[in-house]
Design a protein around this nucleic acid. Sequence first.
DNA 1: CGCGGCATTGAGATGCGTCAAATGCGGTGG
DNA 2: CCACCGCATTTGACGCATCTCAATGCCGCG
Lengths: 238, 238
Amino acid sequence: MRNDIHTNGAPVLCISCEARDRGVCGALETSQLVELSKSSSRHRLAQGSEVVGECETIEGYSNVLSGVVKLTKTLPDGRQQIVGLQFAPDFLGRPFGKESDLGIEAATEVLLCSFPRSTMERLLEQCPALEKRIFLQTLRELDEARQWMLTLGRKSASEKIATFLLLIARNADPTAAYQHPICFDLPLSRSDIADYLGLTIETVSRQLTKLHADGVIDVHNRRVVISSLERLLSVAGN
Amino acid sequence: MRNDIHTNGAPVLCISCEARDRGVCGALETSQLVELSKSSSRHRLAQGSEVVGECETIEGYSNVLSGVVKLTKTLPDGRQQIVGLQFAPDFLGRPFGKESDLGIEAATEVLLCSFPRSTMERLLEQCPALEKRIFLQTLRELDEARQWMLTLGRKSASEKIATFLLLIARNADPTAAYQHPICFDLPLSRSDIADYLGLTIETVSRQLTKLHADGVIDVHNRRVVISSLERLLSVAGN
DNA sequence: CGCGGCATTGAGATGCGTCAAATGCGGTGG
DNA sequence: CCACCGCATTTGACGCATCTCAATGCCGCG
């Protein structure tokens, strides 16, 4: 492992890694980072591939380096709901064992940095700051889940779509947030969007064309251009 | 503060407190429990009273000793969604500052055991086991939120009602779970139930009478008797 | 060129919301 | 004790948003 004076000896792969400052790895000392990186490995997942099946024990922990991961719940008859989206540099994997009944799947092509369970757990014991980082992410996920419950339970289809577009716009490229008009690619298929919003694909499609007809957005396949952010905000209803 | 040899010197008020073994106080040493109890105070809240307004900084932390607390989200136009229910001995209050945009309200009469923010934060630093307890509760709340997202997004009105009744039945009196027929009082008004399920009060009422007509439950005001647990489970759809 | 997957569009059905009225129940005061 | 009131709940009639089912369009790939 190369030790570069300018990066305080951080592993090369970690030097430019987003997870190192904004993600959980930011909580680690350089020496701990070196240790973790020794047993970490990068994986590229194809769109649609399953990270871990429902109810299975997760084989390890990961950072999302790029792409979007969806967390799903499914009823016995097949109806599905996406209960969370993870973007880079989110942390994936549940501490203290006992994975909940979740499907974890790549919504786009995804790049992961994974660690074995044992290494992570050893570090967790050594390093309270790491546990706190993960705790903070969990609190954020709880906030997001509850915010989405409001959307699922109380918003109309058009409000849901607008809310979703704004969510993606914010995550797609925060630096581009002040470009006008804002444009980005949807990381989800119509079917995934429907599963996220508790709608059908037909309703999703119709609402998108309606927003287009009203001059609020442009849509072509997955490409979205927000023509009027102001009006999109007002449709979203908050 | 009385020190009783049979309880290892735990404060009298804590001796029979549910939060001491099942709640977060279970993580504390006796000496810490004594310290915490010195600055703790019990409050009785009337039904409908607000614990802390949306966006306000919570003035402290609490354990729910009895009753049900609802966590709510509200849209600018007044539409409301209940995003969580807290039963005894759940912990109330968000560590690490920055309360999320939540309304916290007593759904029934509620008994709280509250601590000032400063005491709690000092203990949190001293006692990693306490932080871990709260972390574990947060993980549980996240699971519950996501489970409820599936209910909100993908279940029909009758499935929602059945799911809700089973949820309350499990929380009302776990020891009574094997009595047949199971009976309990709903801790929520029709309006609260509607806000929890993302429905209107009329739909809630109609679905309850339909379940009654189908011989699955008996309802009179808030009293519920589950005549056929098996059928209720099958209506809930999971 | 033709096939398969994804998305759009249309027509019809329906579950749930809306609005309005009736019912029941507890509390208060005469 | 009873009459009255206010509030929560139930019930009914109707409309509409969304779902369902089906057809069509679009595009990449063999």
